[in-house]
Amino acid sequence: MSEVMQDNSVQDAQELGTNPGDPLPQLSGHVSHGRFERVLRAGQFAVTTEIAPPDSADPEEVLRRASLFDGYVDAINATDGSGAHCHMSSLAVCAILTRAGYSPILQISCRDRNRIAIQGDTLGAAALGVCNALCLSGDDVGAGDHPEAKPVFDLDSISLTQTLKVLRDESRFLSGRKLDLAPKLFIGSSINPFVPPIHNRVDQLAKKIEAGAEYIQSQYCFDMDILKEFMKRAVDMGLTEKSYILIGAGVLPSAKTAKWMRENVPGVHIPDAIIKRLEGADKPQREGRKICTEIMQQLKETAGVSGVHLMAYRQEKWVGDIVKKSGVLDGRTPWAPKNLKIELGT
């Protein structure tokens, strides 16, 4: 094991330079400087996860939370006021993580900012070294702790995706004003195949890809039947040739939490069979992790799926264990700051 790790480190050091925050050279055919895009384009099965931005101004807390994932994930999504709750901004979290050498994904929601603010933040993020962005509509303000706030929704996830593509590929603002340097971002968007109109969700996916989504991260998958049907149609329509599709996997700690999520978290679909399994288990927490592991293994075997997006809210310490047990990385160790040994040139 240690020998493998060392080999990886030397190879990484040669490819990536020795200072974790250094930008990587952009490979031919790539749109960004990022490692996440490299993993997907190399045909590796990718694992991404989500960091809960702290209710704090402390950068150390961001790094501490990210370090839980070291060696197990290829990219870390920094949520943008998820569930309409206020936290440290996605942009700041991404900047802190980028400096430490991580591959963060900047989540951009349309709820809080109009097209002027979003375009400005996008340039700012790229200037700070951020390589990936994920375009989302965003939860309604009523779902959060500031329900009295003004919902913006000037753009939607699709026009936002188009906007980022215009900034990057046409090197201009929506207004037409030229940029001196375009933001080199790997652009993604989200999809939820598990809620109505289920039949049209693949059409929605096609629209997102047409708008410019180069990768997709989905909502939690607890229902493989729906997912398989969705992926089959996506493959038939040629969509998986145009975009990398990462499917969401979740960790349920108990039947009670699962039921609560199903009722209260928008867009979460959990079949009764999963709830029954948790109810019947002696150790529901362990069962929840087992369910997650099994789903990840099934996703790996599903045609057209390029990776998993593991969302383990308040279960972050288990991410490494779940990824290891699932075996979806095939023994690969994703790059993390501590893997980088200064052995280059020796």
């Binding site: 939607d156 699709i158 999809i191 109505p196 708008a211 928008p266």
Partner: peptide, 19 residues
């Protein structure tokens, strides 16, 4: 409520009602 021009969002309820 989100004035989406390219919907739906991912929050639609299982019965097809608005989030």
């Amino acid at each position: 409520p989100k004035t989406l021009r390219n919907g739906p969002c991912g929050g639609v309820r299982a019965n097809g009602m608005c989030e």
